[in-house]
Design a protein around this nucleic acid. Structure first.
Length: 566
RNA sequence: UGUCCCGUAGUGUAAUUGGUUAACACGUCUGACUCUGGAUCAGAAGAGUCUAGGUUCGAGUCCUAGCGGGACAGCCA
C-alpha cells in the first residue's frame, strides 16, 4: 500500500521509514512505535523543524504509538527558557500533543553521570588533560589517522577520581574532558575518542548550578533515547556518521537500543534555514523579531497568516527521503491558498486607491448591496456593503493606455464593479502640473445591477471597489520573499545579509477597506477579493485599528500576461 | 588522494520489493465555466530513471567500475 487517505489531510505517501517500521512490526522486532522530537532550545522553530515534528508525531499517530517532546538542553551557554516556551507553543499550535511526556536531556544528567562511570570502570572512557588545540591536533584529519593522547592510559582509579573532581568543580573550564576510548585510527572521525563531557562553569536554565560538567550531544542523545525507550530515533542526514558512535555507546552500556534513522532536512528556496543566520537577522534588526512574517519560523508563518493544517499538508507533500532537496516556495504557497480558499471570508479592500465619481448617480442616493462571504461555502452567508456616488478602485485596475487583453477600466471602456453596476469611464481628471491621475469620472448603467437578472450589457472584467462614503482606512503590509536569490545559503563568499530582498516588506497606509473589517480580531483571516489572503497582525493591530498582513497573493494569470506581453 | 550517504520530468516524492506503455503533487501550457484574470472542471507538454558494462526471459530496482553531489577534522547540536 503506498497511498492512504485521511479525511482533510493530504494523502500519506509511502517512504523508506514507514517501510522499516512495517517490516519491524511484521517481524515482531517491535510491537509499537515510539518517536521523539528533540529540539535544542537555542532558537525558534522553523519550517524545517515542522517537517520533523510532522514526521515524528505523524508516525506515532498513524501507528498508534507515542511521540515525546524532548529538549536537548546539554549546552547551557546557548539555551534559554524563552526558547523552551516558544517551542512548546509552536508544536502545540501545529496540532500535536505530547501529553505528559515533556522531557529534558537535563533530566538525565544523573543517569548519564552514572553511565559514564560505568564506562570508566570498563576501561572504555578516560579523562584527557590535553587542551582543545592539542585534541584537535591529535585527532588527525579525514585522510590521516589520529594519535593517542598521552593521558589515554590512565588507570581506572585515576580516571574515576579525576572525573569525580571534574564534577565537583575542582577544575577550570578546558582543563580536562572525559573521552570515550575507541579508536584514534578510525576512518570515522566520530570514533576517534569523542569527548563525552566538558567542564562548563555555567548556570543551566533548569539545573541551575548543580552541574559544571555537561554531556556532549553524542553522549546525551542516544542514551536519552534509550531511557525513553524510543524505537526510532529520527534525525537529519548530517548525523549519519554519528550512528556508529550512537550504537557503540548503547552496546557498551548494554542498554535498550533505539534505532537511529536519518532523513534529508528541508530546504526552501529564497530563504535560509540556519538557526545561526536566522538569529543574526533578528539580532541585526534586519527583521522584526523571530516572528517577523517574512521569517521561515513557525511563529513567523503563524503571524503571516499560515494555518497549522496548511503546514501539515505541506510537510506531507514534501515527502521523506535521503537525498538533498530544495522545495519551491510555490508549494508552500499552494498549501496555504488551498486551505484559506475554503475558509477565508471574502471582503473588498482597495490597497492602492483611485477615486471614481459616478456622475449620473445622485448625491443622496445610497444602496446596500448583497455580497457573498464565500462562494466555496455558502453556509458562510452574505453581508451588506454600501454603494455610493463616489467609490475607490485599485489604481492598477485603470490604464490610460490599456495593453492588449486588459479587461479592466480605461478611457471609454466599461467594467463591472463587483456586486454593483457596470460603469464606463468618461473622463480622466489629472493634476495639471504633475500629470498624476487624480480621479475618474464615470457613468453607471442602472439596469446592470448584480443579481437583477439579465441586463443589456456584459462587461469583460469585474473589479473590486470600496465606497468613498462608507469605509475605513487601515495599514496593510505586503510581504515578499526575504531573499532575492534562490539559494542564499549557497553564496558562501557573500555576507548573506547582502542578499536580502529590499522589497520584502511594503507598508501601505490609508488603504480603503470595507467597514465590516474595522472590528476584526488579531489573527483573523480574509481574502481581499482579487488581491490575496490577509490576516490581522497580532503585534501592531489595536482595537478598531487593525493592521493587515498579506499572507499570500491570489494566483494571478494577468500579471503573467502583462509581464510576458511586453 | 579516507569513511559514510545520495543521483528518477523544472521542483519534490512514488513505483505492487526483479514484472506490462515510470505514477502523484506543485509548477508550466491549453480549453470550458464564472459577476474574483480567484476557485472549479477537462486536457496537454515534460523523464526512459547520472554514465558504461554485467547478471536475468525481464533491471529505476541486483553486481562492478566510473562520474557528479553531500556529510565528517567543535570541549556545538
Amino acid at each position: 500500500m503506498s497511498i492512504e487517505q485521511t479525511n482533510n489531510e493530504t494523502k500519506k505517501q509511502s517512504n523508506f521509514i514507514r517501510e522499516i517500521i512495517d517490516e519491524d512490526l511484521k517481524s515482531g522486532k517491535h510491537n509499537g512505535v515510539h518517536t521523539r522530537f528533540p529540539p535544542e532550545p537555542n532558537g525558534y522553530l522553523h519550517i524545517g523543524h515542522a517537517k520533523s515534528i510532522c514526521l515524528n508525531f505523524g508516525l506515532a499517530k498513524d501507528y498508534d504509538g507515542l511521540c515525546n517532546l524532548r529538549f536537548d538542553d546539554t549546552n547551557p551557554t546557548k539555551e534559554e527558557q524563552e526558547y523552551v516556551d516558544s517551542i512548546k507553543e509552536d508544536v502545540k499550535w501545529l496540532g500535536f500533543d505530547w501529553a505528559e511526556r515533556e522531557y529534558y536531556a537535563s533530566d538525565y544528567f544523573d543517569q548519564l553521570y552514572e553511565y559514564a562511570i560505568r564506562l570508566i570502570k570498563k576501561g572504555k572512557a578516560y579523562v584527557d588533560s590535553l587542551n582543545a588545540d592539542q585534541i584537535r591536533e591529535f585527532r588527525g584529519t579525514p585522510t590521516e589517522a589520529g594519535k593517542e593522547s598521552p593521558f589515554r592510559s590512565r588507570s581506572v582509579e585515576e580516571n574515576f577520581s579525576l572525573f569525580e573532581q571534574m564534577k565537583n568543580g575542582t577544575f577550570k573550564e578546558g582543563e580536562h574532558v572525559l573521552r570515550a576510548k575507541i579508536d584514534m585510527t578510525s576512518p570515522n572521525l566520530n570514533l576517534r575518542d569523542p569527548v563525552m563531557y566538558r567542564i562548563l562553569h555555567k548556570s543551566h536554565h533548569r539545573t541551575g548550578n548543580k552541574w559544571c560538567i555537561y554531556p556532549m550531544y553524542d553522549w546525551a542523545h542516544g542514551q536519552s533515547d534509550s531511557i525513553e525507550k524510543i524505537t526510532y530515533s529520527l534525525c537529519t542526514l548530517e548525523f549519519e556518521n554519528h550512528r556508529p558512535l550512537y550504537d557503540w555507546f548503547i552496546k557498551e552500556l548494554e542498554i535498550y537500543p533505539p534505532q537511529q534513522i536519518e532523513f534529508a532536512r528541508l530546504n526552501l528556496n529564497y530563504t535560509i534555514m540556519s538557526k545561526r543566520k536566522l538569529l543574526s537577522l533578528v539580532e541585526g534588526n534586519y527583521v522584526d523579531g523571530w516572528d517577523d512574517p517574512r521569517m521561515p519560523t513557525i511563529s513567523g508563518l503563524r503571524r503571516r497568516g499560515y494555518t497549522p493544517e496548511s503546514i501539515r499538508n505541506f510537510s506531507e507533500r514534501v515527502g521523506i527521503a535521503k537525498r538533498e532537496n530544495t522545495i519551491d516556495v510555490s508549494l508552500l504557497e499552494f498549501s496555504i491558498r488551498e486551505d484559506l480558499n475554503k475558509q477565508a471570508k471574502r471582503v473588498m479592500a482597495v490597497i492602492n486607491p483611485l477615486k471614481v465619481v459616478i456622475t449620473n448617480y445622485s448625491d443622496e442616493q445610497a444602496e446596500e448591496l448583497e455580497a457573498i462571504n464565500n462562494p466555496e461555502d455558502h453556509s458562510m452567508g452574505s453581508r451588506k456593503i454600501s454603494f455610493s456616488k463616489e467609490v475607490f478602485i485599485e489604481r492598477d485596475d485603470f490604464r490610460e493606455i490599456p495593453p492588449p487583453k486588459f479587461h479592466r477600466l480605461s478611457p471609454g471602456k466599461e467594467v463591472r464593479l463587483r456586486y454593483a453596476y457596470i460603469i464606463k469611464c468618461d473622463e480622466v481628471i489629472k493634476d495639471e502640473s504633475s500629470g498624476e491621475i487624480l480621479e475618474l469620472h464615470c457613468t453607471y448603467f442602472a439596469d446592470t445591477k448584480s443579481g437583477s437578472g439579465p441586463s443589456s450589457k456584459k462587461a469583460k472584467g469585474t473589479i473590486h471597489w470600496v465606497s468613498a462614503k462608507d469605509h475605513f482606512e487601515a495599514e496593510v503590509r505586503l510581504y515578499d520573499r526575504l531573499f532575492s536569490v534562490e539559494n542564499p545559503e549557497s553564496e558562501a563568499n557573500k555576507d548573506f545579509t547582502e542578499l536580502l530582498n529590499p522589497d520584502s516588506l511594503k507598508i501601505l497606509n490609508n488603504c480603503k477597506l470595507e467597514t465590516s473589517l474595522r472590528n476584526s480580531l488579531p489573527g483573523e483571516k480574509f481574502q481581499f477579493e482579487r488581491i490575496g489572503y490577509f490576516c490581522v497582525d497580532t503585534k501592531y493591530s489595536e482595537s478598531l485599528s487593525p493592521v493587515f498582513n498579506r499572507t499570500v497573493t491570489l494566483r494571478d494569470s494577468w500579471t503573467k500576461i502583462d509581464q510576458g506581453g511586453n
